[in-house]
């Protein structure tokens, strides 16, 4: 599992991905960790297949008992089908996830972890002195969907928005936006169902000060590529399968 520290300040952001041991027939995912002095938040911790390498990678940064929070942007298995395993490994943790998916996500087993339902208008996750904003991203692509914004680190974890699929050894940041666009186009057109939802999200996100846009698949965007992505996505017609 490749590990990249993407922010270092009063707290840290670490990106995990490009797992070499991953079965070839499952989708590649990025996991993110926000690490404060005594706590650790896992953002979209991944599928059950990924649990062991992900846990092993996290243990470089935090002991098990300091993994106190999980966040699931939505209900898909590549996002959170590992929940049943985290549930057994962590004795004192909370899962922040969309309220509308609670009854669904509990199918993965969630007995010891406390389910903290996120209402439709979002909220915050407090991790010691760090306060993260939960940004609504409904219908992008899931009908109950959230992203996480860190105003201090200026990072937006954007779930499936900005996702792309490429070789396991590809770099973690976009280095040529024009080339990268073609790796994203079909995904966004096919998976994102609503132009209206997309417009509302872009308006909301344009008001945030973002240095890094961090999707759940593919490469992250930084600097000017963040604005390039928002402009490109703004102009894109989505929901093409109907």
């Amino acid at each position: 599992m490749k590990t990249t520290k993407i922010y270092e300040g009063t707290h840290q952001w670490i990106m995990f991905g490009r797992d070499e041991g991953k079965p070839s027939n499952i989708i590649d995912t990025n996991q993110y960790v926000v690490r404060t002095a005594n706590r650790c938040l896992l953002l979209d911790p991944g599928g059950a297949e990924l649990f062991a390498p992900m846990m092993a990678a996290v243990l470089h940064h935090a002991p098990v008992d300091q993994i106190t929070d999980l966040f699931a942007s939505h209900q898909d298995p590549d996002v959170i089908s590992s929940l049943g395993l985290w549930d057994q490994a962590l004795t004192n943790a909370r899962l922040h996830a969309p309220a509308i998916w609670e009854g669904f996500l509990r199918h993965y087993s969630c007995e010891s972890i406390e389910y903290v339902p996120i209402p439709d208008n979002g909220g915050t996750i407090k991790l010691e002195s760090v306060e993260l904003q939960i940004i609504p991203a409904h219908y992008l692509h899931s009908s109950g969907n959230f992203h996480v914004y860190d105003p201090q680190a200026k990072i937006l974890m954007s779930g499936d928005v900005g996702a792309a699929f490429e070789a396991p050894d590809s770099p973690v940041f976009v280095d040529n936006f024009a080339v990268h666009v073609e790796k994203m186009r079909h995904w966004h057109q096919r998976m994102m169902p609503s132009n209206q939802a997309k417009r509302v999200w872009i308006e909301r996100v344009r008001n945030l000060d973002i240095d890094i846009l961090a999707p759940q698949h593919g490469r992250m965007f930084r600097g000017d590529d963040v604005k390039r992505f928002l402009d490109w996505f703004d102009a894109l017609q989505v929901g093409i399968a109907v």
Binding site: A56, A57, L59, H60, H61, A62, P63, V64, D65
Partner: peptide, 8 residues
């Protein structure tokens, strides 16, 4: 992998 917190 020599993870610092492996023993936890």
């Amino acid at each position: 992998d020599g993870a610092v917190y492996a023993n936890t």
